[in-house]
Amino acid sequence: MKILTLTFLTCARKSCKPEPTSYPLHPTSAELEIIPVDFNPLFLRALLPRLDWPTLRILCEAFGLPGLQEEAPEEDALFLQPEEGGAMEDVEVQGEKGKEVVEDVEKKGEEETREASQLAKDLHHLLLETTMQEGKLVCGCCGHEYAVKEGIANFLLPAHLV
């Protein structure tokens, strides 16, 4: 289960759902494993608006992973800006190309010719490649512990808690 997945899940108990402390579930005794995934900066760009940044910061801390910056990044931060890309020679030619790129973006909404930033690579690694294989997810409201085994979390409650 990816770290990203935890931002969509909460305690299975009905009575916990309205309580803010039931999300995120807190990982404990977690064993993480890196499962490589093809890097796709365009996917990250589309994912960015869906990220619950404050929660991801909490999860990183709980997993003992490197901290995330305080503010959620803007889309541009996923790509190297032209001035970082090096020489700005042949301005005229680049200008022409730039124009074509803009048209492409409008046409397909997909084109992205800029190179991905280190932040994009770090986010890819954290959100999509880092998986929780073993451990427990604990509800901050009722304290119930959900076991994670071989990458699959078990949210089934005993009958008396359903």
């Binding site: 289960m1 990816k2 990203l4 997945t5 969509f8 899940l9 909460t10 305690c11 299975a12 009905k14 759902k17 999300y23 995934v37 796709n40 996917f43 999509l128 998986t131 990458g151 699959i152 979390a153 078990n154 949210f155 089934l156 409650l157 359903v162």
Partner: peptide, 22 residues
């Protein structure tokens, strides 16, 4: 062909483990 991104499998009763509105 690019494919979607699989978040994983979870064992649960229906949608009980899902956050509201996600």
């Amino acid at each position: 062909v690019s494919v979607g991104t699989f978040l994983g499998s979870i064992q649960a009763d229906l949608g009980s483990a899902m956050r509201s509105g996600v």
